[in-house]
Amino acid sequence: MIDWSTCPAVECHPDVVSGAWVFRSTRVPVAALFENLEAGATVAEFVQWFPGVGLEQAKSVLEHAARSSLAAA
């Protein structure tokens, strides 16, 4: 399980998207990035499809997930 609380690109509020982790200052769930990538989308396509999410935010989330995976191994 990834600890998103240490990733500056995301935030979680109980009254925003039912408390899901979202990209900071948006209502776009972090899970949407991974779902779209698994479906074959590129990061560039994702940020086009979800206005408000910046390329650097998406890259930060992916880097955080990668670091978390390495730490758990």
Rank of each mutant, 00 (worst) to 15 (best):
G54K: 00
E38Q: 12
G54E: 01
R27E: 14
F34L: 08
F46L: 04
N36F: 09
V28E: 08
S60E: 04
F46I: 02
F34G: 05
G52P: 00
E35I: 08
N36M: 13
G52H: 00
V53C: 02
A31L: 13
D15M: 14
V43M: 10
S60D: 00
T26R: 05
D15W: 14
V53N: 02
A39S: 10
F50Q: 10
T26E: 03
V17L: 14
P14Q: 15
S18R: 14
A44L: 12
A39E: 10
E35F: 09
R24D: 08
E38H: 12
P51D: 11
A58V: 01
Q48E: 13
F34V: 07
Q57N: 03
V61A: 07
F50H: 13
V17Q: 15
L33Y: 03
A39P: 01
A58I: 00
V22P: 05
K59L: 03
G19P: 09
E45T: 07
L37W: 07
A20L: 13
F50N: 12
N36T: 10
F34C: 04
F50A: 07
V47F: 03
V30E: 00
V30P: 05
S25D: 13
D15V: 13
W21A: 05
A58G: 01
A31Q: 13
P29N: 11
Q57K: 02
V43F: 08
E35D: 15
G19N: 11
W21F: 12
P29A: 14
E45P: 02
A20I: 08
V30H: 01
T26P: 05
G19W: 10
V47H: 03
P29L: 07
G40Y: 03
S60G: 00
F23E: 06
A41F: 06
V28Q: 09
D15S: 14
E45W: 09
A31F: 05
V16N: 06
V47G: 03
A58Y: 03
V47I: 10
V17M: 15
E38T: 02
V53W: 04
F23G: 08
Q48W: 05
Q48V: 10
T42K: 01
S25V: 08
P29V: 10
V16S: 05
R27G: 12
Q57E: 10
F34P: 01
Q57T: 03
Q48D: 12
T42M: 06
S18A: 15
A31N: 09
T26G: 07
D15H: 14
A31P: 02
D15R: 15
P29E: 15
V22G: 06
F23N: 07
G54R: 03
V17W: 05
A32R: 13
A39W: 01
V43K: 06
V28M: 09
V30A: 05
N36Q: 14
V43E: 12
R24W: 01
A39Y: 04
P14I: 15
A39Q: 10
P51N: 07
F46G: 02
F50S: 07
A58P: 02
S60Y: 02
